[in-house]
Nucleic acid binder design. Sequence first.
DNA 1: TTCTGTGAACGGATTCACAGCA
DNA 2: TGCTGTGAATCCGTTCACAGAA
Lengths: 214, 214
Amino acid sequence: MTLDIPEVVVERLPIYARALQDLLSHGREVVSSQELGEQLGITPAQIRKDLSYFGRFGKQGRGYNIRRLVEELRQILGLERDWSVVLVGVGHLGKAILHYGGFAPQGFHIIAAFDSDPMTVGQEIAGLRVQDVGRLRETLAARPAEIGIVAVPATEAQEIIDRLVASGVQAILNYAPIAARVPPQVHVRHIDPVLSLQSMTFYVKDAPAFSPPK
Amino acid sequence: MTLDIPEVVVERLPIYARALQDLLSHGREVVSSQELGEQLGITPAQIRKDLSYFGRFGKQGRGYNIRRLVEELRQILGLERDWSVVLVGVGHLGKAILHYGGFAPQGFHIIAAFDSDPMTVGQEIAGLRVQDVGRLRETLAARPAEIGIVAVPATEAQEIIDRLVASGVQAILNYAPIAARVPPQVHVRHIDPVLSLQSMTFYVKDAPAFSPPK
DNA sequence: TTCTGTGAACGGATTCACAGCA
DNA sequence: TGCTGTGAATCCGTTCACAGAA
């Protein structure tokens, strides 16, 4: 069942879940695919089709019960449980990741952080003691984690990813600017702001910056 | 011409450009779509088709001249020129962005940074004086920027994006966890690590963390 | 022979359009 | 009447397969 659901669909589910939680926190109880779509810039048909892969959550003529649907989606996505995350690379970016308050409330707990720089190892950051990256495997053997975040320089990234995979990590969030190679059972998402910028400049390059009329 | 090129294709071009520059820096002069594809995990046919939208850059039987192709791609993407970028939001994330050394070498220059917190305004970070976000419009009127980076909390993000757009920004890199609404001529890319994690957990949720055999 | 460039075939995702239920 | 759920139709991106150039 899991296997024949398009990946794009799975990637939209968390977007729906978040928007629905938002509506819920505003006291809303029911929403139509129409309204949700307007809020997200997604067509209503798309939303209904996506949801139909997983069940029949709506009521004809009414719409979707928001609380119910959020719970279903969180269940489907595995967001009801907690996840253990390890971070490799504690430079500026790694530090920002450790300080970022958005992971824990969603159940993603960074349980260990590693770096190779002796000046960084031993530091306590956001309540976590940075360990030497050489201890990655043994630390993960004692306390497994499902997810790894890679925030090391490009030159070291593939090596670190290989070691995370060898240590049992099943999903990797890669901030390094490389096309990571992993075995098929491991999942990877890339975060690369430079690539994002470089693909946007294609569209704006002919229009020089301007000051709009006041 | 610009308009009928699939966006996915445009998004792959910077990936090619980077890989090619890498090869170039290793002294390579020619590469086939086959080899490039292996390096990137992209099929050779895909690469050839992508490039064919823009011209005929290869030599049959030989492959692509790397230097030539990099230059073509950089030209197409507008990477030969410099771009002015403003950052809004100088929390942990914003600071990391200011310190990040990956933008400037690619021609993306952060020329101004804004925040709303009086404790942050006036600070000098990575050589840049943080300004009050209330001065966004006038600063951009005096010194336009094509690109805005949004690193403010979700609650403020849409408002900031509206003001960036009103100030002439044409492309936005949005780190805030919202579905930003912008006019059609403005381009947006999202960076949202939580969404990335949440779409991966779908695939790994049934397999608990384990320690692989040593 | 090798590898590009590209129409044609294919497959997958989106949108349509409507039957059916509340 | 309003809105879901869903097959069918459409659209779009990827892959195939091969003609043709070096």
